Simulated scan of single mutants.
Amino acid sequence: MTDRDQLREAFETQEHNTPDPSAVYARVQELSQKYKRRRRGAQIAAGGVLGAGLIAGAINLPSFLPASNAVSNTSAGVPAAAPAVSASADPEDTRQEQLEAYSEAGFGYDDAGRLAKIWKLSDDNRLEVKAEAGRRLLLGETLPIKPTPDAPVEEETINPQDEARFAAFFNAGYTYTEAEKLAKIWKIADPSDAKLEAGKRLLAGQELPVKPTPEGVAAGLEAKRVSKFFDSGYDVDDAVKLAKTWNLKDAYSAKVEGGKRLLAGETLPIQP
């Protein structure tokens, strides 16, 4: 699965919630940490592209057609009707279990495309296809295809110095748009190199000739807080507990609040 596929899946996990740009920006950074730091430099550089324009053009989630829950090895079936879920169940946790079941069974990204054709679902939203397949597997059903795991991707690393420069660039609220402007001002061919140069100057306490937008600054601050939350050893389960402790609306808000307190030198009420 390519980095582009990973970023698209990150969008898909948020499309049904119609979030604001800053929430998606932070969520993508969170998810990117789960991909074994592969192509880390490309992921960080790509983060600046996330904005309202892309979110507005996101693809709507498909609706699944109800059908029998019976086990079937044929290719003619459509997704079975979802079983009743108790009001106390966390949809995010259920969805994660479905995706994990899909991956642990050995199925890959290309398999989701094959299943989309068999079940007549949108191939543009393979994450939903994976979740549906995982739901069936958890029910004990057999999928109509054999698993073909994704081919291993050669890991590429980024040196700590460049990683710090990229982080400084995005945490300050800058995006790819500002990187393009800076590249023209500094006569740098590649905007990614302009990000590194900008990050270097920011870390040195210098001001850049281009200012970030207020929306970018807000998104960068949220991303910084979420990163601090995870870098401190906390995970999603901790965020759920903190959301209940602080009476927040969801786990994401707890990640932002937790990161904010950690950056201020405070201690959270639970240990990671």
Rank of each mutant, 00 (worst) to 15 (best):
F107W: 05
R136M: 03
E100Y: 14
L138W: 00
N125V: 15
K120L: 08
S72V: 13
A189K: 11
R95E: 12
E154Y: 02
L61K: 10
D93L: 15
A82C: 08
N171M: 13
L139I: 03
S192M: 14
D90M: 10
L137D: 00
N125D: 11
A167V: 15
A67D: 15
S88N: 04
K120N: 09
F107N: 00
G77D: 15
L65H: 07
K120Y: 02
D124Y: 14
P152R: 09
T157M: 13
Q96E: 09
I118D: 03
S88K: 09
V78G: 00
P66F: 11
L143W: 06
P91L: 13
R135Y: 02
G134R: 12
T157W: 15
E132R: 08
E155S: 09
I185A: 08
D162Q: 13
R126G: 03
G205S: 05
V153M: 06
D111L: 03
N125C: 08
D162R: 13
G113K: 07
A81G: 04
L139T: 04
E207F: 01
D162I: 11
A204I: 12
E128I: 13
D111K: 04
I188G: 00
Q206T: 05
L143C: 01
L115T: 04
G77I: 15
T148R: 13
D111R: 04
L115H: 02
Q161S: 10
I118E: 02
A76S: 06
A112F: 06
Q206N: 08
T94R: 11
K181E: 12
R201S: 01
S88W: 08
W119G: 00
L143R: 05
D93E: 14
P152D: 09
D110W: 07
E132G: 00
D162V: 08
A131F: 07
D90S: 08
N171C: 10
G106S: 02
G173Q: 07
F170W: 08
T94L: 15
I185T: 10
L61N: 07
A189Y: 10
E155P: 01
F170V: 11
A81Q: 15
P144Q: 11
A80M: 12
A198M: 11
G205Y: 11
V71G: 03
T157Y: 14
L196C: 00
Y176G: 00
R201Q: 09
P79G: 03
E163G: 00
P152T: 05
A204Y: 06
P147C: 02
R135I: 01
T142N: 07
T175Q: 06
A116G: 03
E178Y: 03
P91V: 14
V85S: 07
A67S: 15
L65D: 04
F169I: 09
T157V: 15
A133I: 05
I145C: 02
A179R: 04
Y174W: 09
A172V: 13
E104S: 08
D123K: 14
I118P: 01
L99Q: 05
F107M: 04
K181C: 01
S86D: 14
R126T: 10
E154I: 07
E132D: 10
A172Q: 14
T94H: 07
F107S: 00
D110H: 04
P147R: 11
K181S: 08
A80V: 02
